[in-house]
Nucleic acid binder design. Structure first.
Lengths: 249, 249
DNA sequence: CGGATTTTTGAAAACCATCAACGCGGGTGG
DNA sequence: CCACCCGCGTTGATGGTTTTCAAAAATCCG
């Protein structure tokens, strides 16, 4: 399968959850225990399945427990923009606590398992716990920061810079979750996904990846990716593209 | 000056603030009165002045009381991406409640006046008022939604669609604040600002605006803009660009 | 009026999209 | 076991959109 797996049963509950660090309750074990009791279950989806759809009413909220997923929006004419790659521990839409309807769709990139919460119950709980409320504010503030950074490089960077940044960004996030050890890591994104994330066509992504490979920076096989020259890739991500023979802007 | 002015003295305090509807305390007059007492003052800046700079520690938080401002980020090599046009009533960075350092810079587009709050005081106050905490969460959720929409059209839309959307978006936001009456409204953005907001060069923005003008959709003079054919402009914004002689994607 | 900023325009080139074809591998069913 | 199909990646040729560079015209402001 190529995907790193955690036990689906969650033996010790949220308090013992292996991906706890990245989640709502973070470093607070007593909160974890209480959230544990709120969870209505764990749900699994096959790869490529749609987890929720733009426009639907929000009745449940999810945390991604295992696997990769993609948050995205569709334009009326069928164009698609991916908004975020979701990794284990990520909440799928904190905004759902406030908004009545989904503002985006979510699709599984690999087989996934989600922790499920009832929206009304979680709302009530959050409102009764000012500390948690504050913590959620912090998470949303961070999300705003990340979105603004993505906006920045979507607006101002070349295809090479964007692809390099995406790869490094995912590598960093995986590393922060201890899901990567060494240069090789899982990377289930198809080139179409990369394109829809970065405002490029899949064809062009293919060419860019080829050049990065030819430059000895990365290697892709199976559904894994290896960063062979981290420094070089980072240099491109920062806009010092000379290394790979490109210049612009 | 071309800018709609409110009295700078704020005669009745926040409770009577003419732009109250769009702000933190929204429909809650008793909150307004208490926030009124927290405000440490009103500060003004000339057009083009920098209000705060990326990387600086956050000691004060601001609400834009009058005038236009721009939130933006710089890349190390000098490229600039504008993140948001700020209009009267907008909070400048709610995220600043959580983050220690500014993650962006803010610049005045017109002469502006800001309501100033001490960060530590406001933090404390917010944490003591769970309702306000919740309300701020809602504002941030909305901001996330807006950022995701901008991400979507930055990634997937043509220059014509982007420019049309920007104009319509600003018109709608001004209308919601009752700062526009009829087709003509203040529009102090330079073409460079538009370009840096949409990931385009100022030169290209000039060409696109010219085509929109030639198509009889808009007119610019002074620092004002007129939408002559709202339907047509909206059609372009939605991606039905045939009206202006463009197709793509 | 004079100097600075902003807008406009033209020509050439870069970047990326589009269209189309082919190869590859995995799965399915005959 | 093999043929077939499907999803995915690759490559080439071509054209459109946007950038870049440069210079002139227009506007703003003191």
């Amino acid at each position: 399968m190529g995907i790193q797996r955690h036990p689906v049963s969650v033996p010790g509950g949220c308090s013992a959850c292996p991906i706890r660090a990245a989640t709502l309750y973070g470093g607070a074990p007593e909160l974890a225990a209480r959230i544990d009791r709120l969870r209505t279950g764990i749900r699994t989806f096959d790869a490529r399945r749609t987890i929720c759809r733009e426009g639907e009413p929000v009745q449940e909220l999810f945390t991604l427990f295992d696997g990769w997923a993609m948050r995205f929006k569709m334009l009326p004419d069928g164009r698609r923009q991916n908004l975020a790659v979701l990794l284990p521990g990520d909440a799928i839409s904190l905004s759902g606590l406030w908004s009545e309807r989904q503002e985006f769709s979510v699709q599984a990139l690999t087989p996934v398992s989600l922790c499920v919460f009832d929206r009304a119950t979680l709302r009530e709980f959050v409102r009764s716990q000012p500390d948690l409320e504050w913590r959620i504010g912090g998470l949303m503030a961070r999300e705003i920061g990340q979105l603004e950074e993505r906006l920045t490089y979507l607006g101002k960077c070349t295809a090479h810079e964007r692809v390099a940044r995406l790869i490094i960004n995912i590598h960093k996030r995986l590393a922060a979750r201890k899901l990567v050890d060494g240069p090789v890591f899982d990377f289930p994104l198809r080139q179409q996904h990369i394109g829809d994330s970065l405002g490029l066509t899949a064809v062009h992504v293919s060419r860019v990846l080829r050049e990065l490979r030819d430059a000895g920076l990365i290697e892709r096989r199976d559904r894994k990716l290896a960063i062979l020259n981290y420094e070089g890739l980072e240099a491109i991500a920062r806009g010092g593209g000379e290394t790979a023979g490109r210049r612009s802007l």
